[in-house]
């Protein structure tokens, strides 16, 4: 399975997570967000870039609880809470935001 972007194929799994984290860029993110029905705002991008940084540092996609805590630490408690993150990513800041950020599905996510 693959997304098509400007004539280029980007492989993904059956749930839409792209196969190669290094094949990600903001255009890919916008396209996946489109498929997910999410209109990307600067608040969305902030979380997406945070996830990319987290992955670069730790080589895993964080569980939602860990993400929430880490966002609170970095961006403040008004953003590091479930309500704020679920409003941005209704299908889950773990699952949906990781997908848009080009990360694997978080370990422990069922």
């Amino acid at each position: 399975m693959a997304y098509e972007l400007n004539g280029k194929k980007i492989e993904h799994d059956e749930e839409g997570y792209i196969a190669d984290v290094n094949g990600w860029n903001e255009d890919v993110a916008k396209m996946i967000a489109d498929v997910e029905g999410i209109d990307m705002t600067s608040e969305h991008w902030e979380v997406i870039h945070f996830l990319r940084e987290y992955y670069n540092e730790y080589q895993i996609a964080p569980a939602v609880r860990v993400l929430t805590k880490a966002v609170a630490k970095k961006l403040g408690p008004e953003k590091g809470n479930n309500k704020y993150l679920y409003e941005l990513f209704p299908y889950g800041p773990g699952k949906q935001a990781c997908k848009i950020a080009g990360l694997p599905k978080p370990t422990g996510c069922v």
């Binding site: 540092e57 080589q59 964080p62």
Partner: peptide, 14 residues
């Protein structure tokens, strides 16, 4: 292969 070390460093956050 993916190194284990970054992930072990992530455990504190968990």
């Amino acid at each position: 292969m993916k190194s284990f070390l970054p992930t072990y460093r992530a455990l504190e956050g968990y």
